[in-house]
């Protein structure tokens, strides 16, 4: 299935994806494409399947029907090489999930050294540069427990970037942060997007989505209700469900 992928084809292609947890169907036929260097935001009420969708893309959740391809690799394939997929796809979580027994620098270095078997001193150089990039210079030797939520989340972003992914998934990465630290994380994501990283975000930060996204998808009860570029999406929402959601949030 892994047809040769070229950068003019969608980097992520989602076709008619169905996902159930037991009896409960959370994704009921979702389809869309993401092009390289595109930034897309998925918004919608809680329980609409946003997080589930994004977790399906790097095979943390499986799907029952449909197809997801990442750079031509079929994710919904029993013979999938999960490690190969996950080297291409970085993911950042709501709860940061840093490894508490490792310093910030070690958190960033671990995967390239152990998974990619890259030489340690080379990785360390890159890890220090990444920590600088997320504006945490001087915190290399701190343990996650000594960092604020926003700082931990930025280490988590650096940790994902250390694997040199082609796509970054952000699953409500600011939802657990207090308002002052939300900004520092958003600035980091914005920098990434400006550099041309393909980003898929699940977010509740409407202002941020409007500013950063190339395309916004609104999901409700497992389907995409409406989508479009931010300008038209926020100003001319047609579907009553979208309008109701936006009126509550904005």
């Amino acid at each position: 299935m892994a047809t040769a992928w070229t950068s003019d084809q969608p980097i992520v292609s989602i076709k008619d994806v169905h996902k159930s947890f037991g009896e409960l169907e959370v994704l009921k036929g979702i389809s869309f494409d993401v092009m390289k260097s595109e930034v897309i935001c998925i918004i919608g009420p809680s329980g609409s399947g946003k997080s589930t969708l994004i977790r399906c893309i790097n095979a943390l959740n499986d799907i029952q029907k449909g197809s997801i391809t990442v750079e031509g690799i079929e994710v919904h394939d029993p013979a999938l090489d999960k490690l190969a997929l996950r080297k291409k796809v970085g993911m950042v979580f709501q709860q940061y999930n840093l490894f508490p027994h490792k310093t910030a620098l070690e958190n960033v270095m671990m995967a390239p050294v152990l998974v990619l078997k890259q030489p340690k001193d080379e990785v360390e150089q890159r890890a220090r540069a990444l920590i600088k990039k997320v504006r945490l210079e001087g915190k290399e030797a701190s343990y996650p427990g000594e960092l604020s939520g926003g700082q931990q989340q930025r280490v988590a972003i650096a940790r994902s970037l250390a694997m040199n992914p082609d796509i970054m998934l952000f699953d409500e990465v600011t939802a657990a942060l207090d308002p002052e630290t939300v900004k520092e994380v958003l600035v980091t994501i914005k920098d990434l997007a400006a550099e041309g990283m393909t980003c898929m975000l699940v977010t509740h930060e409407m202002g941020f989505a409007r500013e950063i996204a190339d395309h916004i998808y609104f999901t409700d009860r497992g389907v995409i209700v409406e989508h479009g570029p931010p300008k038209t999406f926020f100003k001319q929402a047609k579907d009553p469900r979208t309008r109701e959601f936006l009126s509550q949030i904005l």
Binding site: L83, R86, N97, M110, A111, V115, A156, R159
Partner: peptide
Amino acid sequence: GQWEAADSLAFS
């Protein structure tokens, strides 16, 4: 979350 984070970093 520790398993998931490590999973997504391609650890075996």
